[in-house]
Design a binder for these strands. Structure first.
Lengths: 333, 333
DNA sequence: GTGAAAGCGCTAACAC
DNA sequence: GTGTTAGCGCTTTCAC
């Protein structure tokens, strides 16, 4: 690979002048510029970004760290982030942590993060305290449905509100036995499952309805397949239900399959609402009514916070709860 | 951030010794090692990967470049690549090109690619000739369903064979009017659509069936929504069909919705087969019969070829056509 | 407008 | 075992 030096020699100027031309800095005579550009072309010079980063201290690259790209919510988030970043001229790379604590710890080794100008970190496995230990002078914005260290910027969905909206809508449409697929009976759960279960509860309370803990179907790790099986087992076990709030669309897809395995019709026998508004959800049959987490807003807000940190602002950390909205489709009456 | 020099000063040794300790090289006395490690801990030293890359000429990182992470096929491919790479100790980052020629050209600027030890490049928009122009001394393996420059390693799916399998199965199950959703009537199309259409044709020919070009429904850019609309329009326009081979699962999902919009039952009235075996396809209702492109094999093979290039082998480029298999589920009789 | 010098943080090569 | 030297390719600073 030719270097600045090679180009400088070929065009009879100093490396500094080549650098100035290559970076489009002013104060270079037209003649010199042309000569240098010709040499660049001739030699096929390409800037070495590693050297530039080392010297300039900036890489022009932002990282988005997600558990897995095959989890559609995160795949869609990554695409939204790339779209939102395109106009800024910055470059985005996606890191996958593998959805495990160890994966997150290794993908997020300080050393690696140093290579980026800023990091959007979607936390799943790490504990609050482990996140807090992350080095403080790296521009970092957290994404994730759990409590995070106060000291760090954090963008979180309206989990409770979304679940409440979804459940209230089921109640409004006449459902009275509303299961929560992927919920928890543990009132101390502070994570995504806990918050969405809290919304489900809140909607019942607001409507003056009793909450039946038998309607709480625990979370499933292999989301679609396991959720399907759980619902099938619950119905086979005699559980009466006329509505399901699924904590994610993936769970909802499993739930829909499970209900149909039992010969139940959607929405006539059981109405279903999900959470995530995946692209595929609109094209299921019937279309899935779901909570739209406004991935576009999440990403825009996260990037705003990140830009602020990257520009060196020392302001107090912000913890933003993003608005959500219900998208009504065919799985509700 | 503390540097090697800081650690060296703090522990009273030279930077080289610190480097040796940090990199676990032999020939360091136990006492020194302990002293250095203590200083590393105390100062919170983290290696600067940018400097290491510049000096060592390797970054330990491989890039996978895909059009968009929200396209499930590519999201799943990215996750498979991360899984396959984990044992190797190398690091994977995902770049999104935005599915456009310009996006690919910019994401794939030589400069950026230089930063990686190797690149898996999933080509969509670029022309054969543009790919050929990529610098030749970068370890690079191409993925993608179109012809590629002979000089470069390339892993491609069994597109024709998969489409043939899918269509032959529909014929075997009694379908006689089999549309191809997302196909083309252009016999010169060398890309994914052309190859999969060729397989659809071949199955008809092999079975002694006539091919009716009215059954070719052209590709849809907004895959699910537009495919749904196309099928709906075709059926409304009086097209008779009892089977659909969709060129991708995303198209198949749109097709299923479109058929149902028309009051047709799947598989009783119309059987459907897709291509991609997306995770969601197994949990549609009924489950989608589809061609499994063996993403695991694709990724393993691509990494094998890449490792070979990275180890400096100068062998002839390989063009591997990966085997596919049919996964039979509920959308066929 | 252009250039010389210094150095970002690290490691390869070799001397001791 | 440990230290010294040199330099990866670039940009910052400042002199001319």
């Amino acid at each position: 690979m030719p270097t600045l030096k090679d180009v400088a020699r070929a065009s009879g100027v100093s490396v500094m002048t080549v650098s100035n031309v290559v970076n489009g800095r002013p104060r270079v005579s037209e003649a010199t510029r042309r000569r240098v550009l010709a040499a660049v072309d001739e030699l096929g010079y390409q800037v070495n970004l590693t050297a530039r980063s080392l010297r300039a201290g900036r890489s022009g690259t932002i990282a988005l760290s997600i558990p897995r790209a095959d989890h559609p919510y995160f795949g869609e988030l990554a695409a939204a982030a790339a779209d939102a970043m395109r106009p800024s001229g910055r470059h985005l790379v996606v890191e996958q942590t593998g959805a495990s604590r160890e994966g997150e710890l290794s993908a997020l080794s300080q050393a690696r993060l140093q290579m980026y100008d800023g990091v959007l970190l979607s936390v799943v496995g790490l504990q609050d305290a482990e996140v807090a230990r992350l080095q403080s002078d790296l521009p970092l914005v957290l994404l994730g449905e759990k409590p995070m260290p106060t000291r760090l910027d954090h963008v979180i969905l309206g989990n409770v509100e979304g679940a409440r909206l979804a459940t209230a809508y089921l109640i409004e449409r006449g459902a009275r036995r509303i299961a929560i697929a992927g919920g928890t009976v543990d009132p101390t759960d502070q994570g995504m499952v806990g918050m969405r279960t809290a919304g489900w509860r809140a909607a019942h309370v607001a409507a003056g309805l009793a909450v039946d803990d038998r309607l709480v179907l625990p979370p499933a790790h292999f989301e679609m397949a396991e959720s399907r099986e759980r619902v099938r087992a619950a119905v086979a076990g005699g559980l009466q239900l006329d509505g399901v709030f699924a904590v994610t669309d993936q769970v909802a897809i499993g739930v829909m399959a499970g209900l149909r395995d039992c010969g139940l019709r959607i929405p006539e026998d059981v109405q279903v609402v999900g959470f995530d508004d995946l692209a595929v959800s609109a094209h299921l049959w019937p279309g899935l009514t779901t909570v739209d987490p406004r991935k576009d807003l999440v990403v825009t807000e996260a990037l705003r916070l990140l830009e602020r940190r990257m520009s060196g602002v020392e302001a107090e950390a912000e913890h933003q709860v993003m608005p959500v909205r219900l998208k009504v489709r065919g799985t509700t009456l």
